[in-house]
Design a protein around this nucleic acid. Structure first.
Length: 262
DNA sequence: GGCTTATGCGCAG
DNA sequence: TGCGCCTAAGCCA
């Protein structure tokens, strides 16, 4: 269940606990079995994230591409692991730790060319050093709602439905505002909010938009919708009016019609 | 036990 | 634009 902060977070965690040694790669569920054989017992060199995509680089130019989609998730276990519970698509077993992957949209072995083709489809990733001007040039002429553009991975890679809602709420912008209606200053605010929120998500491993002061408790202890200012809420945390939840860009957005007018 | 929902996206038409 | 797919959890009866 990830947006871009989570893939970058996972890349670092998985790199630190699995790379450098050969891994036993299996597919207890079976659907990744023939691909698992292509990388099993090879050394994992590097784990990389871009947007919502993960790339596990094994020796010999063999790359496991993972996209978690809406439901995919990882969990880690000490090695040697117990028998898998539920539908485990891929199990990466290292010396000390084992990682189980469930429910991904994509999990297969690819080569460098296919990886490049994936990157070519994606826009700049704020957590991979994207610069404001690159994204601004993609947005400024588009006659589509900003709520739609923010979810478009070819415009900006890594933003998902929660970030979208939280970013627009933070800057008080309506999701229906067209890209072409933004001036540079408004986009600058949007950009700063995006980068800050994604970096904070990367730091904590989960999206947190409220401040410790707003929450009245340490951020690391926040759970569920308490981490958000508007996503999943019924009432506005700022003005107490009802939150609207129309579909924008064919996904449900949460926003306050009263606070988000610019 | 069934139904709905969920931080996504590719594809047919 | 709408559909299908991946999996698990929460809600209801």
């Amino acid at each position: 269940m990830p947006e871009g902060h989570k893939t970058h977070y996972l890349a670092k965690v998985h790199h630190d606990c699995l790379s450098g040694g050969p891994l036993k790669v299996t597919s207890p569920q079976g659907r990744f079995r023939s691909d698992a054989r292509k990388v099993s017992n090879r050394v994992l060199d590097q784990v990389e994230a871009y947007g919502k995509h993960l790339f596990y680089h094994f020796e010999g130019d063999r790359i496991v591409h993972v996209h978690l989609g809406r439901y995919g998730s990882f969990n880690s276990l000490p090695s040697p692991p117990p028998s898998p519970i539920g539908q485990v698509r891929m199990r990466l077993q290292g010396e000390r730790e084992t990682i189980d992957l469930r429910g991904p949209t994509a999990c297969r072995v690819i080569g460098p060319d296919e990886k490049q083709a994936i990157l070519d489809r994606l826009g700049p990733d704020p957590l991979s050093g994207a610069r404001q001007a690159e994204v601004w040039s993609e947005i400024q002429d588009r006659r589509k709602p900003i709520g739609t553009l923010l979810l478009d991975q070819s415009v900006i890679a890594g933003v998902g439905n929660i970030f979208r809602a939280e970013i627009l709420f933070e800057i008080g912008m309506s999701p229906h505002r067209l890209g072409s209606e933004l001036d540079r200053k408004a986009f600058g605010e949007l950009w700063r909010s995006t980068v800050a929120m994604m970096k904070k998500g990367l730091k904590y491993g989960k999206i947190i938009s409220v401040t410790a002061k707003e929450a009245g408790q340490p951020l690391s202890q926040l759970e569920g919708n308490d981490r958000f200012r508007v996503y999943g809420h019924k009432m506005c945390s700022r003005c107490d009016s009802p939150i609207s939840t129309p579909d924008v860009g064919s996904r449900r957005i949460y926003y306050c019609e009263r606070c988000q007018t610019r």
